[in-house]
Amino acid sequence: MKIDEAIQDVQRAETELAKRLRLTGERHAVEHDLFHLGHTLARKCGEHLDRLATVAGKYGVQAESAPAAESPGLLETARHKASELLGRSEMTGMLLLRDLRELYLRAQEAEITWVILMQAAKACRDTELLEIATQCHSETELCGKWLRTRIKETSPQVLAVG
């Protein structure tokens, strides 16, 4: 049984996704929805890791927790700086699109690691793990859907103007 590897893959993917969500949210803080939802969804990644931790030990995997958010004061500063430096330039559009695409791929990666874990849980008849994986999977899938919506809305403005 190699479920431990599937669990570690999920941990890596969710940790990376959380980091990327925060990074993109901060780098594009002038996109206020990205800033707020990026942090909300990064918190969700943390919750997923916490839930996974409740069963990880059973498979000999060490619990992993998501990188903590910085304090609001620092974020606020970063946001204003980013806003001043980048906010008034059309060039931010291409950067935004690239970052969103990258983030979307991270969300897809996390999503598929959950699918893999769900399959393993089913085969091993681990209902506890399956329940956690199923719920977390649907939330991670939503993160991807949200990004898909956002990318579909953003790309025409970035690419068709000028």
């Binding site: 002038v30 996109e31 403005q157």
Partner: peptide, 19 residues
């Protein structure tokens, strides 16, 4: 119809970045 009608906060964001 490639996306929803743009909301005002986004319209202003496009004005802010200059598109």
């Amino acid at each position: 119809s490639w996306g929803p009608p743009t909301h005002i906060m986004q319209i202003l964001r496009y004005a802010e970045e200059g598109s």
